[in-house]
Amino acid sequence: MTQPNCAIIDYGIGNVFSVRRALEQIGVEAELTADPDRILAADRVILPGVGAFGRAMEKLRQDGLDRVVHDYVASGKPFLGICIGLQVLMEASEEFGSHTGLGLIPGRVRKIPVEDDAASNFRVPFIGWSPVAESQSGAWQGTPLQDVPDPNAFYFVHSYEAVVSEPDHLIATHTLGGRAITSAVRRDNVMGVQFHPERSADHGLRFLEAFVNL
């Protein structure tokens, strides 16, 4: 089987270099591109991103990439959003005002609630490694999380979380300050992860490999 043609959307936000290097490490030559034709022609598309939701959406719209993402997703081919790339899949975010997202997955993005709980000592932004758990039995079936080892750990850095409207779209959670937080969402061929697989050592590389080989 020939290797799937993998594109990373390069829209001037976040560390695309790390994602490309992580893919190279598992033998995948991914293309960094903002060219709609190249994105639509790819077999796998990754939308990375760090920073603020509003700025990420602004950059996507500015280049018309919001429509390109919709068109690509309509083709049924696998799509992966990472961190802000997950959050922009939702309908809206409350980060620094109110912003409209891509609306590919019903739900919204909100600040992670922090309770004054000295025992949990939970701080925002959450920066660190956490295991992720299947939200309900069978939720990882047919997704790149299917073969994640147990125990697992992925690297997170975030202050906001996606909250899905349809429970079936939530497939993985991590626990912060005693609360279950969204770590991964999925709707048909669209998947988003809050963690950074490109920074999650072996488990992250294996996750990316599973996505490319879906």
Binding site: W129, P131, P151, N152, A153, D202, L205
Partner: peptide, 14 residues
């Protein structure tokens, strides 16, 4: 407290 499992350990133990 949580420590991340190492890939090599997890794969050899799987």
């Amino acid at each position: 407290h949580f420590v991340r499992p190492l890939g090599a350990v997890a794969s050899s133990g799987g």
